[in-house]
Design a binder for these strands. Structure first.
Lengths: 153, 153
DNA sequence: GTCTATAGTGGGATAGAC
DNA sequence: GTCTATCCCACTATAGAC
């Protein structure tokens, strides 16, 4: 994103932007805050880790520049709002931050073309979601026998 | 990383780089391949998800530019090597890719200063590692009661 | 609040001599 | 394989008129 291109899309000249923002950094911060807010609103509209993952991915792929901005410039207030739904779904701040990192990484890698197919992307999302959903606070995972005794796996 | 700065650090002039690489992209690819190879070698020296996480983070924080390059330019061959140890530890390609995304995201967010303290970073790493370690292939997680009946939780 | 014009910077890439 | 010299472009930011 450059000041010229942004101005062009707004139908004004680039220098006019500097009447509204001191410099590019200030403008980026404002954009990031709005983006976080918008994403937070989207996330609030659905429940469940799977849905949050799908919403996050769809929103980020639709706004790749904002996705990156959101990560590197963040107002703490807007961030808290966006993080709310995920925190509620995971119930643990550390796990929520880990899940955020996972989602952020997934999108960046997909945007960089690091997956061979859409199927591969979706399988990785599913595997990650499964991991965070089933993560317990156990220091050691239960032995496979535990699951088998309940007729699953 | 700019051609000028790289040349300066090598003690030569920028145009000389173009005798070795056609353009900046080709140079970046070569750097990314070397980086992936080096990281892969580091990872091979230890076993276990926790250790891999620690090694990945330490290496990436020591080479932030290479870390980003590695993600956006990747030779598939070098990537396969670096991914080997993690795949071996997780036993599943999709989960390994998800774990890669998690690690990548964690480092990017830490580099962007998105964590308030080192403790917060480490707690998120631990939560993520825990999640990927304990992830089962169950489509639906067992109810909490399952765990409680075994005296854990 | 918008414009035109422009200063100043940094960076990718090439030409051609040695 | 290295150098000097240079071109060309994209970008941020400011000055000053309307």
């Amino acid at each position: 994103m450059t000041m010229r291109r942004l101005a062009e899309r707004l139908g004004i000249q680039a220098p006019s932007l500097y009447k509204h923002f001191r410099d590019k950094g200030e403008l980026e911060e404002a954009l990031a805050a709005r983006a976080l807010d918008e994403l937070g609103r989207e996330l609030e509209r659905a429940a469940g880790l799977e849905m949050h993952g799908r919403i996050y991915r769809a929103w980020a792929l639709a706004h790749p520049h904002l996705h990156r901005l959101m990560a590197e410039r963040g107002g703490e207030d807007a961030e808290a709002r966006a993080a709310g739904p995920i925190l509620a779904a995971l119930g643990d701040a550390d796990r929520a931050r880990a899940a955020w990192a996972f989602a952020h990484g997934m999108v960046e890698l997909e945007l960089a073309g690091r997956f061979r197919s859409a199927g591969e992307v979706e399988a990785a999302w599913a595997a990650g979601i499964r991991a965070f959903r089933s993560a317990s606070t156990l220091p050691v995972p239960p032995a496979p026998a535990v699951y088998r005794s309940f007729g699953v796996d």
